[in-house]
């Protein structure tokens, strides 16, 4: 678990990238962890199927917020339909979390928010 709480993750939690509410998004994706009430909302501007701007807000633990922040830059300029196919492994590999960690849901909430974009 300590491997997960890297300086980079904590930095992304304290100062998350692209954090805030987007006023007129074309797509939003929301995900809630029923276990703890943590939640993320992703906002996307879309031009001809491509992500031209992206932001998120919500509240959660370091793993939840840090994970979203850590992958959000990679989502820019991507094809929306490709994005919807994103796998949970993407984030777990990135933050070095094993699939059987009790905190998997905290990390994959970011993926769920992406998959819920509509």
């Amino acid at each position: 678990m300590n491997e997960t709480y890297t300086k980079e993750l904590i930095e992304n939690y304290k100062n998350p990238k692209r954090f805030g509410k987007m006023e007129t998004p074309d797509l939003t994706g929301r995900a809630v962890n029923d276990l703890c009430g943590d939640e993320l909302t992703l906002y996307v501007k879309n031009e001809e199927g491509k992500v031209t701007d992206i932001m998120f807000d919500g509240r959660g633990c370091a793993i939840c917020i840090g994970s979203m922040s850590l992958i959000i830059e990679e989502l820019m300029d991507r094809n929306i339909y490709d994005l919807l196919k994103i796998q949970e492994d993407t984030i777990l590999d990135k933050i070095g979390m094993k699939k059987d960690s009790p905190r998997v849901r905290c990390a994959t909430l970011s993926i769920e928010a992406i998959k819920n974009l509509k």
């Binding site: 678990m1 300590n2 709480y5 304290k14 703890c36 943590d38 959660g60 633990c61 370091a62 793993i63 939840c64 009790p102 905190r103 905290c106």
Partner: peptide, 14 residues
Amino acid sequence: DGIHPHDISSLLDE
């Protein structure tokens, strides 16, 4: 302040 209860619990569990 600024630290989520789940992070505290996970890190103490270490």
